[in-house]
Structures are given as structure tokens and as C-alpha cells.
Design a protein around this nucleic acid. Structure first.
Lengths: 312, 312
DNA sequence: TAAAAACTATTGATAAAATCTATACTAAAC
DNA sequence: GTTTAGTATAGATTTTATCAATAGTTTTTA
């Protein structure tokens, strides 16, 4: 049994296809096939059932694959140990960010990070929270930035900052004359929401204390961008809620429609999340340092009320 | 990096000597040296400092060795997974037993076990609790039988049975006419103890509620066998306490000197202990099944008061 | 249902590696 | 300063991993 064989097995398990797995492993298909066979011979079990198309994994196979994943991960960590010892921070690092955080946060830290850690090749993907979790578990992402707490097994959360919700209330709205907002004032039926799948949407629903079913039935005005929500709001279709960082770049006219919540304002907790196995932890820590250092300047709220990003 | 290389590194770390490590790994010394070098080259660090004699491990080396141990263990478990799937129970299994349990328990289960699991090559070692713990952590023992609870990290405990303490009170002793014993009746200063290092000694000291320092000062009559204690007791040097299983084989005359405790009797918890990583768990479980099945017939006490085997 | 397509296994050749024996080198012990 | 114990190096040999080519399957398509 070699680590290489285990890696080949993992590739086949992932792609359900020897040819593709071989390609992704940068070897020819016969090479990969033979190595997998050799392992099967050594263990004297079939890991894959090649009769079915696409290939299926046997019952023992599933357990072996799980354990192989474990071993390969632990093996990779040896390089981590050495890197850490040498103070070397570099290599590929794939980061996922949810859509409602991406456009405001990324520009704030990207330049600083790639300057400071020029040996890190940062690859950034925009993904939903669910995809983020899945990909972190699979090892396809090294870390993610999402609203928390997620209470997910295998995943660690390190809070980066707390971002208050800010109301956007157009002139003719019933709340237009209120000085500050209160969660109790909100009526989910005239709050414009992002479309399904955004956790910020779920956060707002939670904030308004609306039952999930209710929310599902009543809203057809759903967009994927806050820009659209603001425009719809200006058209008199209701108010909306924005994350604090999204309010900073508004033009002055729109800024006049912003209404802040009474203290403590409701907020989302934005965290760096990563696999509990802490692979590439040095880069993860470096990223966290850079981001929280920068955000500390932009967000000065101390006392907030954290709203869950999960739809219950 | 290969698993073999990691195994070689572990061997060198263990024996602090390339030549010996090579021998134990069943390869020649140049082979092992080269593989270790190759790994060091690949990682671009020195794992061992060969200048000093005996060889020392570098700081990074220590971390690498720890991780290598982890990886090799996890790799071995793949075979376990397959064995479990096939229902195969076999191979070497090294079991440590503490001296006060060995002579009574081993004859009870050994024959049954080797008959039932004839493919298992059972290797049995008599060792103190401390040695047991050390060797289980090192991976030199697959399991141990000892008095518990031990509260030791990395080690799991599965209780096998609860073995009451029984008093051996010679005719002329002050408690000779009492019907039953009570822990309060005991006076540590006239209880004969096993010599230092036996956890049964510590159990008795705990039972008598004696301070550790007190116990250390006053007793010179210390033996390694209950046989001796009984004989000394008969000579009028005090009473003694025996584990229940040791009382079964006494001759009738000696049995008349036995005095049982009031319910619930103080007892030691005897457990099968093994590494938390659960390597060879099938054999361990098989062993547990056999032993607890057999002991269930011999020990019928339900309610007991467990005495700690640790000297506090 | 036959032909094509997609995929995996097998074969034989080649390159890479792990291992061995013999020996050189190095540091500690005498 | 010589011996001893231990590690590194060199060169030969065996083993293993890989590749290109192709045969053998199963599934799709026509």
C-alpha cells in the first residue's frame, strides 16, 4: 500500500471514472488502473464495482475511501509542518466567498494580502454557504468566508467581524420619519429580499421573526443584488435591509434613506471557515490576520445582536 | 513521500540508530539510510541530527515523527477495515496484564480464547499499570488488562468485571470474631500490603483512607505475591486483603479465615484497556467477549463500591 | 440488433525506484 | 593514535511504476 495508490483510489471515487481519474492524477489510465488493482489485490477486496456504469463503490470500498482520504490528508500535513517550521507561507490556496460578502469585502483585503504573501496563489470562488460547506468538507476549498454560526461538523469558524444590518427606507415609506429602526417595527411583507439561497435573505427573515413558510409564499420580488433591491425600493415597492459594508459606497442621495437600528443593532457574524483538520492553517491564519486587521478600521460597532444565517 | 519512508523514520526515531532500525525493518542499513535521506530531501529539512551519538531528533523531526506515527497507524487501519468486513480475526495480538490479575484471570480465558480464535497469535506480557499505559501509547501492546479507572488520555477502558476485595483475617486478629467487614474497621497499620508499584496496594491504601505519606513510611513487610501475604498473616503479622478471584483456590482451612465486606463491598474495576485509535479492534472486542462471558459465571456481585487503583 | 462509442483491462517495453553488497567515511571510545 | 561503532556513498541488481498500444467490455446510438 502506498500513498500514491490511495490517491488514485480517491480520484476514482471522486470522478467515478478511471480514465478521468487518471487524467486528473496526471498519469495514464493503465497506470492508475494497475495501481488500484494492486491495492485491491493486496487487501484482497474489490474497492470498485466496474460492472456498473458509472462505476460504483463497494461497501468496503466506501470505508476504505473514507480512510484513504484521512491518510492522504494527514500525509499532506507533513509538508505543512515543515512549512510552518520554516515560516514559509505559499502555494495554492482556494477561498470561497458567499455572494453578499464578496463584492464589498474582497476589494478591501485582496491587494494587501497578495502583496504581503506574494508566494500564495490565491484562487477565489463565489459560492453559496451550502456549496462552501460541501467543498470545504471535500477538500476542494481551503477556506471560506460566510455568515455564521453554522454549527457544522468538521468545520471551524473564526469570526472576522460583525456587520450590522442597515435599513434602506425610501421617502414615502411608513417608517420614513422614524429616527432609528427597531426589529419590531419591521414587517416582513414589505421588506424586499434577495432571492432564495442567499443566507442574508434567511438572516433578514430571522430578524423579522417571520415563519419560514410565510416568507416562502409571499415574495416574488427577489433579486440577487442589493443594487436591484435599492432600485425597487425607490420605486415604492417596500423597504429593504443591507449589510453595513454595502452602505458605504452609496451616493449621498441614497445614503439619506439609510436608517440605522437602535443599539444593539442586529448584525451578521462573518467568519473565516475551514476544515477542522486545519490543513494549510498557516495561510488561513495569515488571511485572517489581514482581513480582521483591515476590517477593524471599517467597522467600529461593539455591541451587536447576532442574527442566525440559517433558515430554520 | 511513501508510507515505507515514514516507517523507516519511525524505526530510526525509536531505536536512535540507523543500523538497528534497518535490522528491525528487515532491510539493509544503506537502504534505510537512503530512504530517510530521500524524505529529508523532499521535505528539505533534517529529521535526525546524525552528528551526535546516539542520534538525536531535530525539533521539526519530532513533529514529523509524531505525524508519521499517526499516518502509519491510520494506514494500518485500512487492513483492519478489510478484516472486519471479512469477519477475519487473526494475526499477532500482544496483551499486557498486571501481576495481581494475571495468575487468576489468565487460566480462566486463555484456552477458550485460543480455541475460538485459533488464527490469533496471542502474546502475553506481565507488566505494571504504568508500563501498560506506556506500551499501549507506543503501540507496543495492542491491549492491556488492568484495574481502572485510569483517566488516561489516548486510552479507552472497557470494564470486564468488578472484583470485590475480601479480607483475610487470621484467628488471633482483633477482627477475627466479626461477621462481616466494614471499610471503617480497617486500620492500615495492620494490613499487609503488596510491594510498591502494584496498583492493588494503592487500592487497599485508598480503601483504608490512609494518607499516601503515612503508608509509605510504615510498612516494610511488602511482598509481590498474595501467597506470601497470607502466610505472613497466618504468622500473626496482621490481616490482609485479597481480590475475590484469589480466594477461590484457597484450601478449606484458609477459606475459614476469609471475611467478606458488608454490601456494597469495595471492589476493583478490571478493564480491558487499549489505544483510542482502536487498531485491531476486532480482536480486542473478541477478547472482551470471551473474558466477560467467562467471568460472568464466576463473579455474581451486583452492587459494588469501586475503589480507585491510583495513588493520589 | 448491429455498429459505434466509451470505458477498463492486458501486454510488452521502458524508465524509475528500491534494495543489496561492498566499501568509504566519521565520530566516539579506548 | 588506534580501534570500534555507526553512517554515507557507489555500483550492480531487482523490483516497481509508468507508458504506448491494443484487446476486451459494457453501454449508447442508429
Amino acid at each position: 500500500m502506498t500513498i500514491t495508490q490511495l490517491q488514485y483510489v480517491l480520484a476514482v471515487a471522486e470522478y467515478q471514472n478511471f480514465t478521468l481519474a487518471a487524467e486528473k492524477s496526471f498519469v495514464t489510465q493503465p497506470t492508475l488502473s494497475m495501481q488500484v488493482q494492486k491495492l485491491e489485490d493486496e487487501l484482497d477486496v474489490l474497492i470498485f464495482d466496474r460492472k456498473k456504469k458509472p462505476i460504483s463503490i463497494t461497501e468496503v470500498g466506501k470505508k476504505i475511501v473514507a480512510q484513504a482520504k484521512n491518510i492522504v490528508n494527514e500525509a499532506e500535513r507533513i509538508k505543512d509542518i515543515v512549512d510552518q517550521e520554516k515560516g514559509f507561507i505559499g502555494g495554492d490556496f482556494t477561498l470561497g466567498i458567499i455572494p453578499t460578502i464578496m463584492p464589498t469585502l474582497l476589494p478591501m483585503f485582496l491587494k494587501t494580502f497578495i502583496n504581503k504573501y506574494s508566494k500564495v496563489n490565491l484562487i477565489i470562488r463565489e459560492q453559496s454557504t451550502e456549496q462552501l460547506i460541501q467543498n470545504i468538507q471535500d477538500g476542494h476549498l481551503d477556506a471560506g468566508i460566510a455568515a455564521t454560526p453554522l454549527k457544522t461538523e468538521f468545520i471551524k469558524e473564526r469570526p472576522l467581524y460583525y456587520e450590522p444590518f442597515v435599513g434602506y427606507v425610501p421617502k414615502n415609506h411608513r417608517l420614513a420619519k422614524a429616527k432609528n429602526l427597531n426589529p419590531e417595527d419591521l414587517d416582513i411583507s414589505d421588506v424586499l429580499l434577495l432571492k432564495d439561497g442567499h443566507c442574508f435573505r434567511d438572516g433578514v427573515i430571522n430578524l423579522c421573526n417571520a415563519p419560514k413558510s410565510f416568507a416562502d409564499e409571499h415574495f416574488q420580488l427577489q433579486s440577487g443584488s442589493f443594487e436591484t433591491l435599492i432600485n425597487l425600493s425607490n420605486e415604492g415597492l417596500g423597504m429593504t435591509l443591507l449589510p453595513y459594508l454595502n452602505t458605504l459606497e452609496l451616493d449621498d442621495r441614497k445614503k439619506q434613506n439609510l436608517k440605522y437600528f437602535d443599539n444593539p443593532p442586529p448584525a451578521r457574524e462573518v467568519s473565516l471557515i475551514y476544515h477542522k483538520n486545519e490543513l494549510k492553517i498557516q495561510i488561513t491564519e495569515a488571511l485572517r490576520d489581514v482581513i480582521s486587521g483591515i476590517v477593524r478600521g471599517a467597522i467600529a460597532f461593539q455591541d451587536v445582536k447576532i442574527i442566525s444565517p440559517l433558515n430554520k
